[in-house]
Computed example of a mutant assay.
Amino acid sequence: MVSAENRVIAAGFLGVIIGFILLAAVETFVGLPGQWGFVVAFLLLALLGVVIPQVYLSSVDRSVSRTARMGVVTVVLLVLASGFSAEVSGTEGITIWILVGISFALIVAVEIRDGYRQSVQDGTSEP
């Protein structure tokens, strides 16, 4: 039997495939200026294939720590950004790395908030 985690990840990749088909249709009929198609492709792959499934799984599946899931998101985003930024230059490349930086900052902020909440609950917030 297929686990719930595998179904969520498969649904994410199905979303990526559908997203790329829609991106190809938009590129064919309307077109995107410059190399913005790479930025949109990065967003589709990152959000639908990695971020949304891992965030969903971190909220419903407690067998794997949220920190580990967000670590996976960070590493995959860095790898994807490296690959996509090699194909683009200028504003598009900067945009990809800004998106990665924002996601990294959000992950760090959530971990700091959770650590603070845990220390307050434990009563160990004194220096």
Rank of each mutant, 00 (worst) to 15 (best):
E92S: 13
A68T: 11
V72S: 07
F104C: 11
V75W: 06
V88R: 03
G71S: 00
I102A: 14
G90H: 11
A109Y: 00
T95W: 12
V60E: 11
T67E: 05
S63G: 03
T91Y: 12
A105Y: 09
T67G: 04
V76C: 12
T91A: 14
R69S: 01
A109H: 00
V64A: 07
V88Y: 02
V72A: 11
F104E: 07
A105P: 06
V100I: 12
W97A: 03
V110D: 07
R69C: 00
I98Y: 07
W97Q: 05
L78Q: 10
V110P: 04
S63H: 05
G101Y: 12
G83H: 05
R62A: 15
Y56N: 08
V108D: 01
T91N: 12
V73T: 09
T91P: 11
S65R: 03
A68S: 03
V88E: 04
V100E: 03
S82C: 12
I102Y: 12
S82P: 00
I96P: 00
I107V: 14
S58E: 03
R62W: 10
A109P: 01
I102L: 15
I102E: 12
V108R: 02
A105V: 13
G93E: 02
S103G: 14
Q54P: 03
V88P: 00
T95R: 05
V55L: 13
S63E: 09
Y56R: 10
V72T: 09
S82I: 11
Q54A: 14
T67N: 03
L77N: 15
L77A: 14
Y56F: 14
A109C: 02
G71D: 01
A105M: 08
V55M: 14
T67A: 08
S89Y: 04
V108W: 00
S58P: 00
S103M: 13
S58C: 04
F104V: 14
V55W: 11
T91S: 10
E87Y: 06
V64N: 05
I107K: 08
W97T: 06
T91I: 13
V100S: 04
L106W: 10
F104Y: 12
V64M: 02
V73I: 15
F84N: 00
G101I: 07
